[in-house]
Structure formats: structure tokens, C-alpha cells
């Protein structure tokens, strides 16, 4: 396997008798921006779990900078420079905002983002001493993105980053991702089409656990077959 940035080859994933993913390829470069979309049950989150090494695929290999990562312990994957934001906001509720960011920073050997810049970026400068448990849902989402950035990754994977956000917050998130993308590669799994449109990223469409289409979002959006998939006509 060549040593490209992130490369997934012929990925298949089976849980017992259920084939969730089949024969999916993906290759991305440094500082690239990729969206993965598809209707509910298309296998997006499972694919993201495979890409982050949380799940070892039953077929195929995922390699980050030439190293196979499937089945590696989570903390070792993180130290390779892969950060992840989970679908359900998962922050440390007993710690304050700034402590959450510190813990994220301590897990990594690199510290590229100063604390104040991070707090400013995620809009929580005035809430730095508030306990995680007391944050509003949207603030938790932002904090979790901040934690992922604090660990100074070179690849950031976001699982439905705008779930539960207002339209304004969604637009802000898209702007933040563009800003981050200048320094690192981002893969976002999303089913909010307006957000993916705002991202304007290279888009991979999954359908029933298989590769369906890949290309610039404008082309994907105009594709009749993709619309059929989303409207359930296929």
C-alpha cells in the first residue's frame, strides 16, 4: 500500500449475519476536506469508526501515513494525529471548559493552538470556568470540537458536528471548519444537506453500506440518482 495520507481499501464490515459496509475505497490527502453523506442506515458512522480505527474492518485495510491502524488501541491512534468528535457530545462533565481543553492538550505531544485562541475560536471565552455539565447542548458540541483541535491533530473526523445546532450555529461551524482546514485534513459525516452545501467539500455518498457517488458537492447535489436515494425512491 502506498504511503498516502489516509487510505481505505476495499473496506467491508460485517456484524454477525449483517453486512453493514461492502467494498468501499477512499483516499484523501493532507489538508483535504471531505464530507460523507447518505440516508439513515447507510453505514456512515460505521465507516467513520473504521476510518478512526475504533472498528477493525472484516475486509480491507485502513492506513494512515502508510501504517495500518485497524485494531490499534484508541490512545495510540490519537497520538498518530487523528482526532475525533463523537456524534453525541462527549465532554468531561466534572471538569470546567478550560480543564477539558487542557486534558485534550495533555494527551498529545504537540500543542499548536494557544488556549485563548482556542476559546475564542469555539466562542467559549466567557464560559471558561463553567463546568462541562452546566453547558448548553450547542456549547457542548463546540467544546468537543475545541477538544479535538486542542490535541493538535493532522486529521479531524467529525460525526454529525451540527446535530442539535441552530441554523446560525451550523453556519458558524462550517466557517470554523474552513478555517481549520487550512492546517489539517477534515472528514465530516453529516446528513444536514445545508451544512454540507456550506462546506462545499468533496463528497462521498454511501447507500446501503456501499459506495454510491463521489465528487464535488455541486455535482452530487445535481445528481438525480442521489436525490432518489435521499427521497427513498431507490
Amino acid at each position: 500500500m502506498s504511503s498516502s495520507f489516509l487510505r481505505a481499501e476495499k473496506i467491508g464490515m460485517r456484524f454477525g449475519g449483517l453486512q453493514v459496509l461492502s467494498d468501499i475505497d477512499l483516499e484523501i490527502g493532507e489538508r483535504s476536506l471531505t464530507a460523507i453523506i447518505g440516508p439513515n442506515g447507510a453505514g456512515k458512522s460505521t465507516f467513520l469508526n473504521v476510518l478512526t480505527g475504533v472498528l477493525r474492518p472484516t475486509e480491507g485495510v485502513v492506513a494512515f501515513r502508510g501504517q495500518a491502524i485497524g485494531g490499534l488501541p484508541l490512545h495510540r491512534i490519537a497520538r498518530l494525529g487523528i482526532a475525533r468528535k463523537f456524534q453525541i457530545p462527549s465532554i468531561f462533565s466534572s471538569l470546567t471548559v478550560v480543564e477539558n481543553l487542557q486534558v485534550a492538550r495533555w494527551g498529545s505531544a504537540r500543542t499548536e493552538w494557544p488556549e485563548d485562541e482556542l476559546l475564542e475560536m469555539i466562542g467559549l471565552r466567557d464560559r471558561r470556568s463553567v463546568q462541562g455539565a452546566e453547558l448548553a447542548h450547542g456549547e457542548k458540541q463546540w467544546l468537543e470540537i475545541g477538544m479535538a483541535i486542542a490535541s493538535s491533530p493532522t486529521l479531524l473526523l467529525l460525526d454529525e458536528p451540527t446535530a442539535g445546532m441552530t441554523p446560525q450555529e451550523t453556519a458558524d461551524t462550517a466557517a470554523l471548519i474552513h478555517r481549520l482546514n487550512k492546517k489539517l485534513a477534515v472528514i465530516a459525516v453529516e446528513h444536514d444537506i445545508s451544512f454540507v452545501r456550506a462546506l462545499g467539500a468533496d463528497t462521498l455518498v454511501l447507500h446501503q453500506g456501499r459506495f454510491f457517488r463521489q465528487g464535488p458537492f455541486a455535482e452530487i447535489e445535481a445528481d438525480e440518482a442521489v436525490r432518489d436515494v435521499y427521497l427513498g425512491r431507490r
Binding site: P73, L74, H75, A78, S90, I91, N100, Q102, V103, M147
Partner: peptide, 23 residues
């Protein structure tokens, strides 16, 4: 630092591991 990382692990071990901590 030691105590905060421990609190983080006791709050959400998987999240702490995903940030690079060997829980």
C-alpha cells in the same frame, strides 16, 4: 495534571483514550 486526567478518565474513559490518554 494527574488528577484532572483521572477525573476525565472516570467521567468518560473512551473520550480520554480518543484524546491520546492511556487510561
Amino acid at each position: 495534571r494527574w488528577g484532572r486526567i483521572l477525573t476525565a478518565i472516570s467521567d468518560n474513559e473512551m473520550r480520554a483514550a480518543a484524546l491520546g490518554h492511556n487510561a
